[in-house]
Design a protein around this nucleic acid. Sequence first.
RNA 1: GUGGGUGUAGCUCAGUGGUAGAGCACUGGAUUGUGGCUCCGGGGGCCGCGGGUUCAAACCCCGUCACUCACCCCA
Length: 423
Amino acid sequence: MKVKKLKGFRDVLPEESPAWIKLEQVVSQIFTRYGFAQVRLPLLEQSTLFSRTIGEATDIVEKEMYTFVDTGGEQITLRPEGTASAVRAFVENGFDRSNPKARWYYIGSMFRRERPQKGRFRQFNQVGVECFGWKAPGADADVITMLWDLFTALGLSGRVSLEINSLGCADDRKAYSDKLAKYGAERIDKLCDNCKKRLGKNPLRILDCKSPSCQEATADAPSPVDSLCDECTEHFSTVRILLDDQGVPFKVNPRMVRGLDYYSRTTFELLTTELGAQNAVAAGGRYDALVEQLGGRPTPGLGFAIGLERLILLLGDEWASADTPDVYMVYTGAEAFLMAMRLRRLLMLRSTTTTIDFEQRSMKAQFKSANTCGAKWAMVIGESEVEKGEVTVKNLAESQQQTLSINNAIELVSTKIIASDEE
RNA sequence: GUGGGUGUAGCUCAGUGGUAGAGCACUGGAUUGUGGCUCCGGGGGCCGCGGGUUCAAACCCCGUCACUCACCCCA
């Protein structure tokens, strides 16, 4: 039996990796401008970190976590999301006491044992942002604007839509949740089986059920926005004013609820219609109680996560292409091979990318490979070049060649390459 | 966890009971040192796996596994 990769896990091969590298560059460039610094956090954590923060009753905790007992007898979990770890690190390293205003971002793998489908994998990568220490609505607007700027920089602003909502503070959320549970109970015969269960555990979720009968039954359900206290109403209103002022287009969706328990006040999602059922590319919100919940001094916070596999799908194959070598070394004979290897090294020390075949193949075959790998130049070393200590330089696109001294050849190729890089 | 679709060469796929195919890719050659176009050759497959029906199965039947899309969930 051949060993195969696990279900829902992926190999990112050389064809695809340039897109990942480019994406990470764009992300870190934009986030750095906004003052966010990168953190790198563990993939494994104590299981209780996630069950306490994400919510015992969520699908993630109930059935999707990779949890096991390690040989030391400790129950540990492969992180299913990033915020819990970030908040844990924030508290554990004393930021809540010494430096409670912090802007963090991270890039890394998360793990959830779901049935894979388009845009959904068991190991998937997220870019996450956490902004600690600001209660004011300016932080909400700033984080959302940064997310929008990233998608604009990637050329995707026309293909995603931003939806925002406010769930209110803990009291509002509780009050609204009770109101909705009562509302749902009055129409329980019209709800799907799943939503009947939700009424008891997490009534908010009946709002975003896709079942047509539930959609109909909850069409005139009370809106969370109408249940906000004065302070939360003011907060949400200011977020919208600031986003308008920054020219960030958004739509208020009062039915949008998030799956994780820790969200309060502002929540938002970046949606697309291009990825089938997986329509959320990025999502986030405020979590003002989470730091305290994990034993830190009360510190407000908010953040979001972007699904990178979904982002790469949106960007498409053409967005980033593999680097092709500048120079292909062509040679015949043992001495020419030595010369080709030495010349190749000199070129590479001058920042030229080169490639060479180590089998003694015919020149024809070597030129064929040079062509298919997309090399711009060929350096040809045969018997006559070895004799004279020269090298033939061929421009493959223009099909023109000249024989030069080694120094002149290096000079020619490296200046032309620098010139073409600057175009 | 539940449904639908698909499993044949590295890739995309044809092949409806009678000796496994095409295109692309790879590789060698077309007067012995030059690529892209063309032509000729070559390597490659327990036809996902197991069972059954049949003189005979890639093809029909049963089971199983994998992939995929959708439900669900979410990034």
